[in-house]
């Protein structure tokens, strides 16, 4: 079992992303596996988690110290990748790196190393690149390049205030297509018993 944390984006950005994902899927027959999770910005790759309860407790502590921060999604990008043994790609939106995101990444890396397991070497430190994945695989790289040419102008320069952290879990027993789901969502700053859920009021700005 693996798990990681991700910053959730506003509903407006989710809606814009999903509209494009669906359009591309309908036209090019790509996959929607990435849509099994809400559009998100992972703060680091998943790590092995022997006991989910410890991870759960750590998340409660982590969000208490977080405050909403701005996120800037700059442009679409195609990243060549082997997916299911095939030369394919990921289509993602690049996220502008900010000191807040980098600090969050570094802190989680350090905490993971201290509490859970040795972080994987790949992407575990610099230069981890923050991104929001739209889709991966299902078509060869050449099709992804066509998709990029056609849609690069559709999603760019989106902004929101991030205010929620998600814990994503992956069941490695079904490798290489692990079952995955959103396990928990908490607002930055935490929430005590009986306090209102703020998930409906994600602040958003798009230009």
């Amino acid at each position: 079992m693996k798990a990681t944390f991700a910053v959730l984006v506003s509903n407006d950005i989710c809606n814009a992303v999903r509209s494009l994902v669906w359009e591309i899927h309908q036209k090019y027959g790509t996959t929607m596996k990435a849509s099994h999770l809400p559009p998100h910005i992972s703060v680091r790759p998943p790590v092995d988690v022997p006991d989910i309860a410890d991870f759960d407790t750590y998340m409660d502590e982590l969000v208490r110290g977080l405050r909403p921060f701005p996120v800037h999604l700059t442009n679409l990008r195609v990243m060549p990748a082997m997916v299911d043994g095939r030369d394919s790609a990921l289509l993602w939106m690049e996220v502008k790196e900010t000191p807040v995101l980098r600090q969050l990444h570094d802190r989680i890396n350090e905490d993971f190393a201290a509490r859970f397991a040795r972080p994987r070497a790949d992407f575990g430190g610099h230069p981890y690149q923050f991104h929001l994945t739209l889709m991966f695989g299902g078509q060869p790289l050449s099709v992804y390049q066509r998709i990029y040419e056609e849609y690069a102008g559709r999603l760019s320069e989106m902004y929101c205030m991030a205010g929620e952290l998600a814990m994503l879990v992956y069941d490695g027993q079904n490798h290489p297509n692990p079952d995955q789901m959103t396990y928990k969502v908490l607002p930055f700053g935490g929430r005590g018993p009986g306090e209102a859920d703020s998930s409906a009021s994600q602040n958003l700005t798009m230009v």
């Binding site: 759960d56 929620e164 069941d171 995955q180 789901m181 928990k184 969502v185 859920d197 998930s199």
Partner: peptide, 22 residues
Amino acid sequence: ADVQNLVRAVVWEIHRKYRTNI
């Protein structure tokens, strides 16, 4: 989100124990 979190904790536990699907 509070109810979703409660439900998902149970979903994951059941899936891990009984290999249902998610």
